[in-house]
Design a protein around this nucleic acid. Structure first.
Lengths: 346, 346
DNA sequence: TTGTAGGCGTTATCAG
DNA sequence: CTGATAACGCCTACAA
């Protein structure tokens, strides 16, 4: 078998048919001014030869690739995977393809990815910045180069582009307020990395909910983990529950940490929710199948993906004329299941 | 703000510096035969103008894109997400980018994806076929066009390309054999869609394990769900556990279904593992945090990704000369936790 | 109805 | 050390 096979081009077809490449091109594109018979001949041969148009050449010519760059911190998280599904459903339907990249929460990798996607000339970007991203130069450059960008999930203060976010503050507030109203007096927080806007907002929502209920904020009842995995949660939950004066409720930054907290709580002999209520954040598919089923704050991940993609699509067809930028904030929904006590008044 | 900004090219830089494009090109590529001063000037201006090389042009010239197409049925599954992580870790380290696409388990979409990736001239393919894929023409075409392909996770009978698979049969056999040896007499199976090679093999492993232990295979103890989600499992588990003569063990096709089965079992008042043992397949991150923690068959998803990518890389650098194709089979590992009884002899 | 020529951005080759 | 030219595959005026 020959290797490095040259792929077939319109010129090949043209030669074989003794016509010009432009005629082939037109036939393939169903140009009206081409004889039916010629079209048929061309198309038949093209199929036979398994001709695949070379989009590189076309894109170079058109200065348009129909590719969209999607950058997420990690894909192994149901949250981002669901967002991506939403994005894909919209973009594919409009004839766009997705080039998906993970930054692995690394600033360096993120920069490399952005540069690369720039070089392959994607038509637009959908980005959830890494948690390490402080400097915004790479995004600013992008923006200045005129490519449409939509930032989602994680805010980038000071970057003026379209954004689709979630009201993390509100979600946290709802959860903690509920916990207090249901009778918990000592609500602790297992938070995430404070380099993340989402973690910061959830923490603030927690704090403000306590204050608005005239409860004091106790430093020893707040832990922030580095990562978002179960193992991170286990460690933090142990420290928390080993306290002489342990909490009677935990609001966790995400479901994984909450699950870990449930695990530790049970291990230590706490009854859930009688001794301790636990609420997470995300509503992962598994969450409702735990015992007890996990109360949580649901993020409309799929919808976030849909909307982000739709906004990008708009910018694509109608390059930014308006001066302002959209800033869409989804409101999360508190889902009460069995890991938290019921409110007496409901 | 001007829209549709033309991006800066080496010609722009050349003009501004009153030198030729070739010199700019060489300077940018650190060609030895260029005066240091010229290099410096070029590079400085390039940075100032935020020059990004146009890889479309380059790729067109080189007939090489450094892009690899990765096609999976769905991304919202921890299993595939983990495989992708493995792929990405290898490929990125070698300077390749990934174009990731989901077929959503649709044959039609898969074909469209393959055609599109062909057109954008990816250098190679990593594919987990959709469950609906029966005809293999699109893959055969690909192969004939000379692009290296590696199929992973799901076998494609009759397609001669490199493959990285998992010994599903063995995993199932191990699990069921364990269940029987631990004293279970009536082991049921909650299987997946039989259009999937993996489901078929797991089912067969289940059957053969029963037979090899001289247990009869009962049709009423085998259910096959359409999908792989919890909800699919709930329905099937209910049917199974409502039987007059319910099983004393369940081997589920994956963890989600197993979790659903645990949920239903508890709901119906079964004690796990005293009344019924349950074993899943996958070892998802959540699985060890359930109560009881889920016994399962661990698939080395990340490693499958690593190996698939490595094999592709090999084919890339060394276009297929050897006649044979690799067929790597990972052996899964049975992880016994608390959802299954202990074997008396261990 | 079809052919010709030019250009998209880059690099390799061959001359200076 | 640097410049001109051709080529990658395709499309679109313009010409015939």
């Amino acid at each position: 078998m020959k290797q490095g096979k040259r792929s077939v081009t319109i010129t090949d077809i043209a030669r074989e048919l003794s016509i010009s490449p432009s005629t082939v091109s037109r036939a393939l594109n169903n140009h009206p001014a081409i004889k039916e018979e010629t079209k048929r001949k061309v198309i038949t041969l093209a199929n036979k030869l398994n001709y695949q148009p070379n989009l590189l050449a076309l894109n170079l010519l058109n200065k348009k690739t129909n590719n969209i760059g999607v950058v997420v911190p990690e894909i192994t998280s149901h949250f981002f995977a669901a967002i991506i599904s939403g994005i894909q459903d919209i973009l594919n339907a409009s004839g766009y393809n997705i080039i998906m990249c993970q930054s692995n929460e690394s600033y360096r990798e993120e920069i490399k990815i952005i540069e690369n996607l720039s070089s392959v000339r994607v038509d637009g970007f959908l980005i959830a910045p890494s948690s390490k991203t402080r400097k915004l130069d790479h995004f600013v450059k992008l923006k200045n180069s005129g490519v449409p960008i939509v930032i989602f999930d994680r805010d980038c203060q000071g970057l003026d582009v379209d954004k689709v976010l979630l009201d993390d503050y509100d979600g946290a507030f709802q959860a903690v307020d509920y916990l207090v109203k249901s009778g918990c007096k000592k609500v602790a927080h297992l938070g995430g990395s404070l380099s993340l806007s989402t973690s910061i907002h959830r923490r603030q929502g927690y704090i403000d909910a306590l204050k608005s209920n005239n409860l004091s904020v106790r430093d020893d009842h707040i832990f922030h983990t580095k990562g978002f995995k179960h193992s991170d949660g286990i460690r933090a939950a142990k420290s928390l529950l080993k306290l002489k004066d342990p909490p009677d409720a935990i609001f966790a930054v995400n479901d994984r940490i909450a699950i870990a907290a449930m695990y530790v709580a049970k291990m230590y002999g706490f009854k859930i929710p009688e001794d301790i209520s636990i609420i997470g954040f995300d509503d992962e598919p598994h969450s409702s199948y735990f015992t007890p089923s996990l109360s949580t704050v649901r993020q409309p991940a799929y919808s976030i993906g849909l909307l982000s993609a739709r906004i990008l699509l708009q910018n694509l067809s109608n390059p930014h004329d308006s001066p302002g930028f959209r800033r869409e904030i989804f409101r999360p929904e508190l889902i009460i299941r069995d890991s938290s006590r019921l409110r007496p008044d409901t």
